[in-house]
Amino acid sequence: MTITGSCLCGSIQYSADVDQYTSALCHCTDCQKWTGGAFTSNALVPRSSFKVTKGTPSTYDVTGNSGKINKHFFCSGCGSSLYTELEIMPDSTVIKAGGLDNGAAKLGGKIDLELYVKDRVPYLAAAEGAKQQEAM
């Protein structure tokens, strides 16, 4: 299947050809700051399957708890968070689910994995059936 997405203004578009993907929530404080929300919802796809099909995203690098770089990609026009490439996960691209097209932000109705649950805000419960991971 091909999943597609874009930023809010449409200047940046992307796609990934995948058989399946891992759906994940990340509760780390960097994701909270980056999105202005309590967590990020994500589709983890093989980096080799991901491509930007329109525009050129801007980037911002953050050093993660691992000491490795987390490269955040975003639209400089509208500010939409698009995807992340983590040095600690060199074979994956972490697509921010809110930018996925055709209602795909719902991630198929299930979450496979929750990361940094130690930083999860107390008013949110664990996603039913998701593997819970304290950190990365």
Rank of each mutant, 00 (worst) to 15 (best):
Tyr60Pro: 03
Thr93His: 00
Asp91Asn: 15
Ala97Asp: 02
Glu85Met: 09
Ile69Lys: 15
Ser92Lys: 14
Phe74Lys: 00
Tyr83Asp: 00
Ser58Asp: 09
Val62Arg: 15
Thr59Trp: 00
Gly79Gln: 02
Lys96Glu: 00
Leu86Gly: 08
Tyr83Ala: 01
Gly64Ser: 15
Ser81Gly: 10
Leu86Tyr: 14
Gly67Ile: 07
Thr53Ala: 09
Ala97Arg: 08
Glu85Lys: 15
Asp61Leu: 07
Val94Pro: 00
Ser66Phe: 14
Thr53Glu: 09
Leu82Met: 12
Lys71Asn: 12
Val62Phe: 13
Gly98Leu: 07
Lys68Leu: 14
Thr63Phe: 05
Pro57Thr: 05
Lys54Gly: 11
Thr63Tyr: 08
Lys54His: 10
Lys54Ala: 13
Gly79Lys: 03
Thr53Met: 08
Ile69Ala: 12
Asn70Phe: 07
Ser81Glu: 02
Ala97Trp: 04
Leu82Glu: 06
Asn65Cys: 09
Ala97Leu: 03
Ser81Tyr: 01
Ile69Gln: 13
Thr59Lys: 05
Tyr60Asn: 14
Thr93Val: 15
Asp91Trp: 02
Leu86Asp: 08
Tyr60Gln: 11
Ser58Ile: 04
His72Tyr: 10
Asn70His: 11
Lys71Phe: 00
Leu86Ile: 08
Lys54Asp: 11
Ser58Ala: 15
Lys96Phe: 06
Ala97Gly: 13
Ser76Pro: 06
Leu86Asn: 14
Leu82Lys: 06
